[in-house]
Design a protein around this nucleic acid. Structure first.
Length: 286
DNA sequence: GATAATGTTCGATC
DNA sequence: AGATCGAACATTAT
């Protein structure tokens, strides 16, 4: 269930094994995962070389030798695998691209929420999957964070999940980022002070960057291109730790779980304070 | 068998 | 018009 660090890991691994490879065959096993016409998808991919590998937020962007773009969004359970052509397809394979280098790239997705989209070079728009998403989380800018948070009234954690605010933060990293900022995730976004917004921007870059360094977080479904788990779960401070002790030195608080905008949210009731109502010098903000 | 799951989108409502 | 909320999507693992 990838967020930015998991998709960035896919991008890097895929670039390493598929740069300049040509697509010799396309198998669409489940038309539902193709955004648009499956026949046009197959026709447009066959014979093309994969020449560039990019990403914005949680969207993987593969550039083809004719200028078209292949976009991929894994949503909740989508995974990308690279297997030798001789091996059998994975259990939840939805689309397979056979390459001329002996590898097959497979979109494997249990829940079928993931999407692939082929955007022709001639297309006017940049694609459905890139619609409505803001700047990438690894280049999160403080002034930008200030103004976007200031005009929303939803809890700050819900604002961070909005892909128009920062593209790439998902449910795990949102809780982790706010823990590192010492901020209560329920704080209304507009109550976040400029200094705190700056800190959120900085921690967003830092935590997502660490996520990339550790090749993503594997709790249940996420796997890298070669089927291995990531390692960032070892660094999680609050996500999934309900009822356990806060890991911050000398805190002694307990991690609590609540639900915001329908998503599980974890925080330390002792060292994560709400922006408003915290007196200067009261302490507790890291 | 009920529950929850790393995400987005749509329709209804404020 | 714009923001926000809840349901929907679909399937598995616990």
């Amino acid at each position: 269930m990838p967020e930015l660090p998991e998709v960035e890991t896919m991008r890097r691994d895929l670039a390493a094994v598929a740069q300049d490879a040509a697509v010799v065959a396309v198998q669409v096993l489940d038309e539902k995962v193709i955004a648009g016409c499956a026949r046009a998808f197959t026709r447009g991919l066959k014979g093309r070389r994969l020449v560039g590998f990019g990403r914005r937020g949680k969207v993987l962007i593969i550039r083809l030798d004719n200028g078209a773009l292949l976009l991929g969004h894994p949503r909740m359970t989508g995974r990308l695998f690279a297997l030798p052509l001789a091996e059998s397809l994975t259990r939840f394979a939805r689309v397979a691209l056979d390459l001329d280098n002996g590898l097959r790239v497979v979109l494997d997705d249990i829940r079928r929420f993931g999407r692939l989209e082929l955007v022709p070079a001639t297309a006017a728009a940049e694609g459905l999957l890139l619609r409505n998403i803001g700047d990438d989380g690894l280049q999160c800018r403080p002034d930008h964070m200030r103004s976007l948070l200031a005009r929303r009234s939803v809890p700050v954690k819900v604002a961070l999940l909005d892909q128009k605010v920062v593209a790439g933060i998902g449910n795990i990293y949102a809780s982790e980022i706010l823990f590192h900022c010492g901020l209560d995730p329920r704080t209304p976004s507009r109550c976040i002070r400029p200094r705190e917004a700056d800190q959120i921007a900085a921690e967003t870059c830092r935590v997502l960057g660490e996520g990339v360094r550790y090749r993503g977080t594997t709790i249940a479904d996420y796997r890298t291109l070669d089927g291995n788990p990531g390692d960032y779960q070892k660094l999680l401070q609050v996500y999934g730790r309900e009822g356990q002790r806060c890991l911050r030195e000398g805190c002694g608080g307990t991690i609590r779980k609540t639900v915001l905008a329908g998503r599980s949210t974890y925080y330390c009731t002792h060292c994560q304070r709400t922006g408003r109502g915290r007196k200067v010098g009261e302490g507790g903000s890291r």
